[in-house]
C-alpha cells in the first residue's frame, strides 16, 4: 500500500441529482410545460384519480403521462385509453425515480407539444420523497383506508408536497378516519400544503383539484 494518498472529496451524494433536477426544471420552463410529480402508496387510487383528472382537463390542455412502475404496463394502457399520450417507464427494481430517469422519460414522451405532463411515481411514501425529480410541483394522494396518522409516519413525503389529495372520502363512514385530525397532521408537517379531499370515483372535490392544476398550468404556459 505504498503511495496511498488521501483525496478530499466533500461531495454531497444527492448533489448531482439536485443539479440534474434544476436542469430539467429549466428545460421544462423553456418548453412551457408544467410537470406534476404524483406520489402515493400503492392502492391509493393514483391511476383512477389520473384518469378522472385527464377527463376534466384534456379539452383545455395537451396532456402527456409517464407511468413509472417496477414492472408491467397495465397503468400506461389504462391511461392511453383516455386518448392522451402515455409512456411506461420501468425503474428496473428501483423504488423511486431520480431526476436523470425523469429527464430520459421526458425526452421519450416529448414535451414540445405537451402543456401538462404528469409523472406517476412508484407507489411508495419513502424513497420518492428523497429524490427531487425536477418536477414543477409535487402532489401526493393519501387515501382514507390508509389512516389519518400517515403524515406522522412519513413526515418527509408530506413536507415536500405542494398539494395533498385525500382520496376515497366516500368510504369515510366505514373507517376510523378523522378528516380534521388528518388535515392537522399534514399542516403540522407542512404549513403551506394545499389539502383537497376528493373521491375520484364519484367525482367529489375533483373540480377544485382541476382548478388548482389549471392555475399552475396557466402559469407555466404563459
Amino acid at each position: 500500500m505504498d503511495n496511498v494518498r488521501v483525496i478530499e472529496v466533500k461531495r454531497s451524494i444527492f448533489e448531482s441529482n439536485d443539479q440534474d433536477a434544476e436542469k430539467l426544471r429549466g428545460e421544462l420552463k423553456d418548453s412551457k410545460t408544467f410537470l406534476l410529480n404524483l406520489m402515493s402508496s400503492p392502492g391509493s387510487g393514483k391511476t383512477t384519480t389520473l384518469t378522472r383528472t385527464i377527463e376534466l382537463l384534456k379539452d383545455k390542455y395537451r396532456i402527456g403521462v409517464m407511468e413509472a412502475d417496477i414492472d408491467s404496463d397495465v397503468d400506461a394502457k389504462t391511461i392511453a385509453a383516455t386518448g392522451v399520450k402515455a409512456i411506461q417507464l420501468h425503474t428496473g427494481g428501483m423504488c423511486h425515480l431520480d431526476a436523470d430517469m425523469t429527464r430520459q422519460g421526458v425526452r421519450e414522451l416529448g414535451v414540445e407539444d405537451v402543456d401538462f405532463a404528469i409523472l406517476e411515481n412508484v407507489g411508495n411514501l419513502v424513497c420518492p420523497a428523497e429524490f427531487d425529480t425536477g418536477s414543477t410541483k409535487n402532489a401526493m394522494i393519501l387515501s382514507v383506508p390508509e389512516g389519518h396518522d400517515k403524515p406522522l409516519k412519513y413526515p418527509l413525503m408530506f413536507s415536500i408536497c405542494d398539494v395533498v389529495l385525500i382520496n376515497k372520502i366516500d368510504v369515510m363512514p366505514y373507517f376510523d378516519f378523522d378528516l380534521e385530525k388528518c388535515k392537522e397532521n399534514i399542516l403540522f408537517r407542512n404549513p403551506n400544503a394545499k389539502i383537497i379531499p376528493i373521491c375520484a370515483k364519484t367525482g367529489e372535490g375533483m373540480q377544485e383539484w382541476a382548478d388548482w392544476l389549471s392555475e399552475n398550468i396557466e402559469e407555466a404556459i404563459k
Binding site: V4, V6, I7, R11, F14
Partner: peptide, 20 residues
C-alpha cells in the same frame, strides 16, 4: 413549540477516499 427546523443531520457526503 413546533416552530422548529433541522439545523444539521441530513448530510450525506463522500468525505474522502484513500487511493493509489
Amino acid at each position: 413549540s413546533n416552530h422548529t427546523y433541522l439545523l444539521k443531520g441530513n448530510e450525506f457526503m463522500i468525505k474522502e477516499i484513500a487511493a493509489t
